[in-house]
Design a protein around this nucleic acid. Structure first.
Lengths: 345, 345
DNA sequence: TCTTGCTACTGTATCGATCAAGAACTTAAT
DNA sequence: ATTAAGTTCTTGATCGATACAGTAGCAAGA
């Protein structure tokens, strides 16, 4: 049951039937109606996707690669907002969106990644040493990287100025008079390994965002003539409130002198706030916290969370638009989205 | 640059190169290494997805159709939990997952739905009169419907016993002594149109879940010798706390005698609780609310929300497993997942 | 010497569509 | 009547891979 079957039934050629579906202006209206009616009568499913793809070379879909834990991807507000932006833009363009998760510990060749038909890839916040990157790059299709990793001019990139954002966050705490400051970050590598870190660990991490933000925090401290070595750095092991809470609890127990916390994400900040409350700290009087991202919950949290806003939905929109434009016209671009300090409590 | 290019370079046949990638046991190890090395040297991207699909007839991906507003899909806890289950299962099986949103007001033919290469479809909670259904069914691929619509034995189905669940919820309120009861539902049709409804509207809705749950509520009332016509029914216009809050505010203003609310979802219930508090009601003393779903927030909400739990992540897992099994072995099945009354405050 | 069974590889046919070029026919302008 | 332009439809080639059937070579056993 192919185009030919329908063509034979109507007494026209394959191409004409194809045109009836894809280029209605190429044939008369009555013939087109007759063809579509015959197709319906025969139970023809419509032009086969694989055949079309092979011939046209266009797959009609983009792939979204991520390596985060699947349990978090769909619950994490950062990711879901980003995905919403991507989905909106691709849906509007009539392009499919294929999710390509590569869970931690799973061999890339056992995932759909190497076998899926897409016109290009969105690489969402993947550590620079992740094996999935090689698989994607080998396909030699357009790629837009979001946040991580920075592959230079060879691929398009959408991100923010993490260093400046972090600096703004730290400036805020320092401006409030805080001098004993802790930094809470999600993860430096793929394996979850919560605990204290020293500055060098962060500066040598494979995660650019972590390096840049750490640098930004230190920029602010140097501006205030403080020694960045004084800062306490803790890895939470995951980007969720629970991980943040556990890590902060330990951090504050070992370093009760801390009065200010710089958190890499709002999710961590919310966990940190919970930990502070459990340890009997008054917020924000006895413990000040600054987050990052400005997820919806940041505004409704009690006390409302001061944070660095980045436009997460727009990030998804821009990334998808950029990819689809690259697929059409080629060329690479780098886009830096605006960030903003949102001062709350 | 195809298999042939590599084959010529090494001096073997196309098929052998194909086997080097897909059936390593079909050729010697040293030859395989030589082939893969040559492929690397030539910059061969690996077997082309479209070519493989055309030949094998397998697409290596499943499609997830949904018609909800994209702004909600990725923020709605019900949907994201379901998607998490689907993503987990498909990732584990090495199958791709293609999102197929058909936003309200967009012509199905302008979406990726008719053009995407998938081996089967998950139809997630789509109203029975939605045009996308016809498009999916025409492809004559395996289909698993989740919740909605019930297409009978022709397709597989994953859902819960909505009628019993609703009855359990109503029994709970009635058992507490409530006699003036309101029902808050999300949406009866695709267009958002908040406001009061009468029973007949619900019983004739194109949304089976709404019909069944209404029936369940009424079952419980009849058991208690109450007239179901007394119940106040309100449509929120969307499944989010804000819609629930607005609707409940109006409902309680017009019907201040109501002391018990049966909500179709926890999202609505949370909004209803907010509305109750704003109107000065003490919860649960002056207003008792029962939700549906048991989303994570239900447990942490203040006061904790009594609700009917349905296993949303499992729903996704089961649906994906069922679909992949159907793709492999054919046949259709109906699965009903267990539900449970979670009594909180 | 012959058969059998195994491994390792090859050659041909085929999957279903679209593209490019062109043919047949109609209409309009000169 | 002739030419040009436009419309409508056809033909042949092609996209890149895998399935299937088959062959060559070799070792073991009768």
């Amino acid at each position: 049951m192919t185009l030919q079957t329908v063509a034979d039934r109507v007494g026209v050629s394959r191409t004409t039937v194809s045109n009836a579906y894809n280029r209605p202006d190429q044939l008369g209206d009555d013939l087109r109606d007759r063809i579509l009616q015959a197709a319906k009568d025969l139970g023809y499913r419509g032009p086969d996707a694989a055949g079309r793809m092979l011939r046209t070379g266009r797959m009609g879909a983009i792939g979204l690669l991520f390596t985060e834990d699947l349990r978090f991807v769909f619950t994490d507000p950062d990711t879901t907002q980003f995905m919403q932006g991507v989905a909106e833009t691709s849906a509007l363009a009539g392009t499919g969106l294929t999710l390509l998760p590569v869970p931690f510990g799973v061999d890339v060749n056992n995932t759909a990644l190497p076998y899926t038909a897409v016109d290009g890839y969105l690489v969402f916040s993947v550590p620079s040493d992740h094996p999935a990157l090689e698989t994607v790059l080998r396909r030699q299709k357009p790629v837009v990287v979001i946040d991580e990793p920075d592959l230079g001019r060879t691929t398009s990139f959408v991100g923010i100025d993490d260093r400046s954002g972090a600096k703004m966050a730290a400036e805020h705490l320092l401006g409030l008079g805080h001098r004993n400051i802790g930094v809470l970050l999600a993860r430096l590598s793929l394996d979850k390994n919560p605990g204290p870190r020293n500055r060098a660990d962060v500066h040598h991490a494979s995660v650019r965002v972590a390096r840049d933000r750490m640098q930004g925090y230190e920029d602010a401290m140097l501006d205030h003539h403080l020694n960045p070595d004084q800062v306490i750095v803790w890895e939470a092991g995951g980007n969720d409130p629970d991980s943040g809470r556990h890590a902060t609890q330990k951090m504050l127990q070992q370093h009760p002198e801390l009065t200010g916390l710089l958190c890499f994400t709002d999710q961590l900040a919310i966990g940190a706030a919970q930990a502070g409350l459990r340890l009997g700290r008054q917020l924000p009087d006895q413990l000040s916290i600054v987050g990052f991202d400005d997820i919806p919950r940041a505004a409704t949290w009690d006390p409302p969370l001061t944070t660095i806003r980045q436009p997460l939905v727009d990030k998804g929109r821009m990334a998808a638009e950029l990819l689809m434009q690259t697929i059409k016209d080629g060329g690479t671009r780098r886009i830096q989205l605006p960030i903003e300090l949102i001062t709350r409590a």
